[in-house]
Design a protein around this nucleic acid. Sequence first.
DNA 1: AGGTTTGTTCCGAATAATGGAACTTGATCC
DNA 2: GGATCAAGTTCCATTATTCGGAACAAACCT
Lengths: 262, 262
Amino acid sequence: MNTQSGAREGADGTVGKALQIMDIVADAGRPLRFSELQAASPLPKATLYRLVQTLTSQGMLVYDCDRQTYTPGLRLVQLAHAAWRQSSLAPIARPHIDALSAEVGETIHLAQLDRAQVLYVDKRNAVRPVEMYSQAGKVGPGYCTGVGKAMLAHLPETERQAAVRMQAFYPHTPNTITSVEALEAELETIRTEGVSFDREEHEPGIVCIAAPVLTPGGRVLGALSITTAGPAGLEGLARHRPALLRTAGEIAAAAETWQFPS
Amino acid sequence: MNTQSGAREGADGTVGKALQIMDIVADAGRPLRFSELQAASPLPKATLYRLVQTLTSQGMLVYDCDRQTYTPGLRLVQLAHAAWRQSSLAPIARPHIDALSAEVGETIHLAQLDRAQVLYVDKRNAVRPVEMYSQAGKVGPGYCTGVGKAMLAHLPETERQAAVRMQAFYPHTPNTITSVEALEAELETIRTEGVSFDREEHEPGIVCIAAPVLTPGGRVLGALSITTAGPAGLEGLARHRPALLRTAGEIAAAAETWQFPS
DNA sequence: AGGTTTGTTCCGAATAATGGAACTTGATCC
DNA sequence: GGATCAAGTTCCATTATTCGGAACAAACCT
């Protein structure tokens, strides 16, 4: 049961439909029977059936013939490894995040924007480092997280408006921003301040400070956040502001330098 | 009827072609220009172009318009998160692997079979880590790794033969098995022994002991290995055999019990 | 048994993918 | 500057693929 149906644009062609099926299976979070899949998909039975067969033979879905259920296939894990390595900031940012983690001793998130949603691509726990896909790969809302707001704030005008309009504005807590106007005002503030705060807007008791990772040209690459618990934590986090901004700058610089050999 | 993953068949339909493109981009390991993609793909220019556009608009590829290059998209990371959580052994096996790791203090891998190849789905580093290739999400060869041979050995007859025939048999080291016959003989041995060894067959200086994770019915779920460095390490590893087999059994039991709520 | 739900196959119709060729764009080189 | 060449993009008639209603098979109740 998840989330705002989101703006998956008019699925183009067969490939779009196939990916739509993948989304359904992934969102379900459990093995799905064919009938359940059919209920969740607008596609007619026969069409869905053929598509699912194709995906299965391609290793994108796995079919458990005992239970007659479908789950996402391992081929995805393989592809995603490449995606994570290449087009996420995570590998570049890793050393800098490690350093920041050691310095502040709090939980750190690195996120990027994926179609108006926050996609966490790396995480460092206060206690011990985290294994790859257990946390990375999770998506979150853009309008009520520190990283989300930091990235939205620095998007170009038109993109930002489109992204803002796509937000769900579900009131997770009493502090959640629930209107386009309020969010735009907050984003304005964030642009002048340089950092954003999550003041228990997503989860009660959880606060964070976040900063965008920007190219010299001002393009948003991602965002970085330091999280802690308790409303009293905010002042403590403000203290980390210089370190956070410095690290975000370092990551931006590293990303800029980063060139693949040809 | 049979839905078990076959080979990388002649791409069925548009979806197959699209995924083939994804593979190319992922395998490249760096941003690709359109012309490079075209060179690596059998598809005609116009067809490829449309397909790539579709994939980009679907978030499966990311287009960097400054550099005119394509990289795998973040949507993959999101989908893979679901795949890893649901259809890999990793989440189920985690506590058992942690325990084994603490007990033996060496590098541990958990792998599954994906179209005759080894897919590493989890990894625990040794206290003093041995530097080597492999990470969660990475693929490796089946015929010259401990986990690969352990899984191949316990595949049903026909599937095993098909999988064995698909191996590359590239001689990574002087110890690499390089023929179907030799591999089949080794697999036979492994079936009677219950565990398999990698005697520097893949990387010089790296050895491991591996055991399959099997259902009570004998179906292969995955494999588990303990790795160490140096040819002298083999005897040391043999000492861990009971712990390895016990852990593999525990994981199998946990997987069997594991039922999704309905 | 009979009724009901779920999974699989068929096949004519129609849509969506195809790919050769023509057309931009923007470098590079007389 | 103008010619040359390659990379990237668009066009469009053809054809192969996909579509999906409906029939079929199989399991699953009571």
